[in-house]
Simulated scan of single mutants.
Amino acid sequence: MSDYRKDVIISFITWNNLNIKNIQTTQIQTLRERANYIKASLSNKTIDELLQIAKMYLSNTSLLAKMFAKCNWKKEEVDISNVSVVMPELGDLPKEALLGNLKDTAEFVKNHGNYESSRYIYKLMNICEILSDFPPILIDKDCHNRRKCKKG
């Protein structure tokens, strides 16, 4: 099985470099060109170099930083109804919005546009064509529960 760790870290860094939080209306082609340029400039970096760059966007104690360093990564399709949201926080959304499955959280965001995180998600709908270039990071429940990753 391939370890997609490098791909995941490059996607994470690229997404953060695109600074999409501040977009109003952006040409999809321009975003895609910027993303491709960033990804190409990172492709020859080692995992350790990429981890150092990724840490600029994460606290050293963040779960994601630890997972980038220690987890094995794989690409697979999953049934969205089986995806739980087990994050301690997500922007300014209240904890109760993050306790159910992903569909429950999406429904909360849909019905509560008064949160900054909800408004950000709605902005992303304007660039949905490029979002497919950035697959979501899903954390295996066993990995999350133990706060460390299984090998294998």
Results as ranks from 00 to 15, higher is better:
residue 3 D to Q: 08
residue 4 Y to L: 10
residue 7 D to L: 06
residue 8 V to M: 12
residue 13 I to L: 07
residue 17 N to Q: 06
residue 19 N to H: 14
residue 20 I to A: 08
residue 23 I to T: 12
residue 24 Q to A: 15
residue 25 T to S: 15
residue 25 T to C: 14
residue 30 T to P: 03
residue 31 L to I: 05
residue 31 L to M: 06
residue 33 E to S: 03
residue 36 N to S: 07
residue 36 N to M: 07
residue 39 K to C: 04
residue 40 A to G: 10
residue 40 A to N: 13
residue 41 S to G: 02
residue 45 K to M: 02
residue 45 K to Q: 06
residue 45 K to V: 00
residue 53 I to E: 04
residue 57 Y to F: 11
residue 58 L to N: 07
residue 58 L to A: 07
residue 61 T to C: 12
residue 62 S to M: 13
residue 64 L to T: 10
residue 64 L to W: 03
residue 65 A to V: 09
residue 71 C to P: 08
residue 71 C to Q: 03
residue 71 C to D: 07
residue 73 W to F: 13
residue 75 K to M: 09
residue 80 I to T: 01
residue 81 S to W: 00
residue 82 N to D: 09
residue 83 V to T: 04
residue 83 V to D: 00
residue 86 V to M: 01
residue 88 P to L: 07
residue 88 P to D: 13
residue 90 L to C: 10
residue 91 G to C: 15
residue 92 D to K: 14
residue 101 N to L: 02
residue 105 T to M: 04
residue 108 F to H: 06
residue 109 V to K: 06
residue 113 G to D: 15
residue 116 E to S: 15
residue 120 Y to W: 15
residue 123 K to G: 12
residue 124 L to C: 09
residue 126 N to F: 13
residue 128 C to Y: 05
residue 131 L to W: 07
residue 133 D to A: 03
residue 134 F to D: 03
residue 134 F to C: 05
residue 134 F to G: 00
residue 136 P to Q: 02
residue 138 L to E: 03
residue 139 I to G: 00
residue 143 C to L: 08
residue 145 N to F: 10
residue 146 R to C: 08
residue 146 R to D: 06
residue 148 K to R: 15
residue 149 C to H: 08
residue 151 K to I: 09
